[in-house]
Write a protein that binds this DNA or RNA. Structure first.
Lengths: 177, 177
DNA sequence: CTGATATTTCAGTAAAATCTGAAATATCAC
DNA sequence: GTGATATTTCAGATTTTACTGAAATATCAG
């Protein structure tokens, strides 16, 4: 499949952004391609379109499947596996946040908890002890909150996001109670 | 300066997490060290403590200064520059979000806007056109909302975060109006 | 079962990112 | 100004990460 100029630029930019956030460039590019394509593609087609090795596509798709950003599908009359992604940017965002929470945030909470419980902890300066504790609490609160947000319907969230000022006033009221 | 076992593990983990989010490992480690130290440190001391080259520390501190995560300071009777970071995890979080917004999110909004305005845009499939548009709108809303959040006092935010359920009900009420 | 097609694995290569050490530059005390 | 100290720069070395192509494995149709 030949890319249009805009699709190509979108995919390249997405790859670049992925790289800056610790996502492999090929993985991000493949995801962007499927996102724009809007229909299932075979691994061969992906490899040809992006000019990368078939094996690279295989590995990258495995990664995207693990993140649940891509689903396996089949096309009538074609033996090959096809792959597609959601066209719902909210859903994609949720999956990414969920994945990073599991892979990075939760292990961090665990390790910080171990620090607090360790006999060595007393050996730290009061300064360091407090900072480790506060860091853990910060991450914990943020995580709980993200969980709640992710449980909502996209429409609810969109509303909430567009309602910044109202929410602020609401918070102010609650604080005064 | 010799690191205690917990400090060392904290710094190593932080470096690892940084790497996974696209932040140079040394940069993240240096920041973690200053965070735990809680007092200004000279570049020499940082290099010695983390066993990295003095020149590496110099480059990394420049990076941290650009992110405004670290400030230059001086210690009486010592000619050398010293460096310190805030002990307020909220403030650090704000600076990081702000930095990433400027460096990554805003350029992305710009480029997506260019796509929408480009004469080539009409050549995309309706599917792709809609997805590019929705992606931009999603990022835009998220950014505006993040801006508002970051403008709040930490206490207000903490309240909001801890108030997940109440906020959810509030949103539901608003939707029904 | 057999040949054809599709997919995965992985060792080796290529590319990118990071780090170092030496040299250049800057700053300071005297 | 001079020597001592501090800092930055950057070319090259090192390390890490990513990618490729060939071989192995799996799947399927007949």
């Amino acid at each position: 499949m030949e890319l249009t100029p805009i699709s190509e630029r979108f995919i390249l930019h997405w790859g670049e952004m992925g790289a800056r956030w610790g996502v492999n460039r090929s993985v991000a590019q493949i995801h962007a391609l499927l996102y724009l394509a809007g229909c299932p593609m075979a691994a061969d087609e992906i490899a040809e379109t992006l000019s990368v090795a078939r094996s690279n596509v295989s590995m990258s798709l495995k990664e995207l499947l693990a993140w649940r950003l891509v689903k396996l599908s089949h096309v009538m009359g074609d033996r090959r596996d096809h792959f597609e992604t959601s066209g719902d940017v909210w859903e994609l965002f949720k999956l990414i946040v969920e994945g990073r929470k599991q892979r990075e945030v939760e292990p961090t909470l665990t390790i910080l908890g171990e620090f607090l419980a360790s006999p060595d902890f007393a050996g730290e300066t009061p300064e360091a002890r407090q900072r480790i504790q506060e860091t853990r609490e910060f991450i914990r609160v943020l995580t709980v909150w993200a969980d709640e947000m992710l449980r909502q319907e996209p429409e609810t969230l969109m509303k909430l996001l567009k309602m910044g000022a109202k929410v602020r006033n609401f918070v102010r009221r609650e604080k005064e109670e």
